[in-house]
């Protein structure tokens, strides 16, 4: 079997952007790059993320997800480019003290859910109240009550899952406009994952908050994110409304052919001696996934398949570029 990748659109500028119909923009990146020594963690990232949505930031380990979130949170400086949250530029170390208006406040929950180990849970809430201009104690308490977290227990004596809930409560209590969650479900059991994602979606809907949730485990995304930002090797390769992205892609399978029989840009092509399979990005008008030629079948893609297709395509393209250079 051979595999060929064609990426005719969505590589430069706003990559493969779908579904941003007249919505306020929560986060806008303009050619954001970040280098650690000689290694580029992010390269020329440009995208816009709609406000009030749950954005799934997906990528393999080392794709640049944490780096991107840290730049949005203002704890890491971009080497190049600019980033705006609700129209205000993000400057490292200026998240507070007037550096961000109420509408552009960002909270971040890091992968390891750092908490002060010798603080009790109620101390952590007081920490949140003491270090934020806006603080919603009721919201933070309500989150903790939902997950039965004892307020008087020291954070160092909580389980990993409970620590994650406390960190989430502090983040939610600060009433951010954008909440960044870096691998938030990693420490949670399957039941808690479902509960947390459900509650997060409710909070996002209720609080006019944009949630960006990163993961490298695609299965975690099931039913959670309604907007996708796919990173690979520091570059955004796909972004858009999840439903529209799924509607806009199709897999066509049929007899061996160099080109697909239907319209659309080829994202991925696979060939055996007798059969060809194309993943196509459809034109803007949704298709009905009808059979377009004798012997050919079309199938919709699942989100997992779509993400894997783009990641493979990106990897193939990177290899091709390296071979050329």
């Amino acid at each position: 079997m051979t595999e060929r990748t064609e990426r005719s659109e969505g590589r430069a500028g706003m990559p493969g952007t779908h579904g941003m119909s007249a919505q306020p923009v929560a986060v806008e990146a303009r050619d954001v790059s970040r280098r650690y020594g000689s290694v580029w963690a992010l390269r020329e990232c440009s995208f816009r993320l709609p406000a009030g949505r749950i954005v799934a930031l997906v990528g393999a380990n080392g794709a640049g997800k944490s780096t991107l979130m840290s730049i949005i949170a203002g704890t890491l400086a971009a080497t190049r480019g600019s980033l705006l949250v609700h129209g205000r530029p993000v400057v490292r170390g200026r998240s507070g003290d007037g550096g961000a208006s109420a509408g552009s406040r960002v909270a971040i929950l890091a992968q390891d859910k750092p908490l002060y180990r010798d603080f009790s849970v109620s101390d952590m809430l007081r920490f949140g109240r003491s270090t934020n201009r806006m603080w919603d104690q009721r919201r933070a308490l309500s989150w903790l009550e939902r997950f039965d977290i004892p307020l008087d227990r020291r954070c160092g004596r909580l389980s990993g899952g409970q620590r994650a809930q406390v960190a989430l409560a502090v983040a939610l209590g600060s009433r951010p406009a954008v909440l960044l969650l870096d691998e938030p479900l990693a420490n949670l059991d399957p039941v808690a994952r479902t509960e947390v994602t459900g509650e997060l979606m409710a909070e996002a809907a209720d609080g006019d908050m944009t949630v960006m949730l990163s993961t490298h485990i695609i299965a975690e995304l099931s039913g959670v994110g309604d907007h996708l930002l796919l990173l690979d090797a520091g570059r955004p390769v796909l972004t858009g409304d999840v439903d529209e992205l799924l509607d806009g892609h199709v897999r066509m399978t049929g007899p061996r052919a160099d080109q697909p029989p239907g319209p659309g840009a080829v994202v991925q092509a696979r060939h055996t001696d007798r059969q060809s399979t194309f993943v196509l990005r459809q034109p803007a008008t949704p298709t009905t996934h009808a059979v377009v030629a004798p012997g050919w079948t079309t199938q919709p893609l699942t989100l997992d398949e779509l993400i894997l297709t783009y990641l493979r395509a990106s990897a193939t393209e990177s290899r091709d570029l390296e071979a050329v250079s």
Binding site: V25, W135, G207
Partner: peptide
């Protein structure tokens, strides 16, 4: 796309 701050947020229960 529109650059806009989010709608007015719910009254806050505290400040610091």
């Amino acid at each position: 796309v529109v650059d806009a701050a989010p709608a007015k947020r719910r009254a806050d229960a505290g400040s610091g």
